[in-house]
């Protein structure tokens, strides 16, 4: 069985696709694209697909990952093109590589997020971020399947900063827009960007007037320097060493 790993994006309006929605669409795309997907054994065979942690519904992503098992060999780039064409625009397959050793999940322990806060001045956001980082612990609440629970949103945050952009997205009409670059470790319970935003409200009373626009920029292995290593890098190297 050939295993292939994919990176895909959820963009624009289709960032409102939930993980379950994506999974259904992806299985249909496999059929549309004629992918020789492998199936599990048993009475009700399931296609061999495993997903890395999915971005929350409503959050865009440039870095979602999954792995599929195939009955026969295909060229990864041809597979990428076929699958990308079989999915709605906005669910875009960006990269496909032959899977190397180890599991995808073992290579992912952190994410980088970009949070756009329209109508929030960068300086205001900066003050909130400073207060957040200065706090040893920031308790926030979220509804989970187990009901409302309280947890620390601070410890998992590796870095958080307001970044300056030459041409921020919604500053055209003179409306400010703060942009936060955030790196968070994947822990349990998960600390998501909206939890960090809750944290900014708790520590500094930051209340964005319109909903934030969040995008996952990267997932992968966190280095000691706080950088994130692309989880497919090792697979690409493997290709380089072993050849095709």
């Amino acid at each position: 069985m050939q295993r292939i790993r994919l990176r895909y994006a959820k963009r624009g309006p289709l960032r409102f696709t939930s993980h379950r929605d994506f999974a259904r669409a992806f299985e249909r795309a496999l059929r549309r694209a004629g992918v020789p997907i492998a199936f599990s054994q048993g009475f009700t065979p399931h296609p061999k697909i495993s997903y890395a942690s999915a971005a929350p519904t409503g959050v865009g992503s440039e870095a979602e990952y999954l792995e599929i098992g195939l009955q026969s060999q295909v060229d990864p780039e041809q597979l990428r093109i076929a699958l990308d064409a079989a999915l709605s625009p906005g669910l875009d397959v960006l990269e496909a590589v032959r899977a190397g050793e180890g599991s995808l999940a073992d290579r992912i322990d952190a994410s980088r997020w970009r949070i756009e806060l329209p109508e929030v001045a960068p300086a205001t956001a900066g003050d909130a971020v400073t207060a957040f980082l200065a706090a040893p612990e920031v308790l926030v609440e979220r509804m989970t399947k187990q009901g409302r629970r309280s947890f620390d949103a601070r410890a998992a945050v590796v870095s958080c900063m307001v970044v300056a952009e030459p041409d921020p997205p919604s500053e055209a009409g003179g409306v400010p827009c703060a942009i936060i670059d955030l790196v968070v470790r994947q822990v349990t319970p998960a600390v998501r960007p909206d939890d960090v935003l809750s944290g900014l409200r708790v520590v500094a009373g930051l209340e964005p007037p319109v909903p934030a626009r969040v995008t996952r920029l990267a997932q992968g292995t966190l280095t000691a320097q706080g950088e994130i290593v692309d989880p497919l890098e090792a697979d690409r190297e493997g290709v380089g060493i072993g050849g095709r």
Partner: peptide, 17 residues
């Protein structure tokens, strides 16, 4: 702006095949 505040927002965005 309203979609993050409603249930199942995907039903309002289109994008069907």
């Amino acid at each position: 702006q309203l979609l993050p505040r409603v249930s199942k927002p995907i039903q309002y965005v289109g994008g069907e095949l």
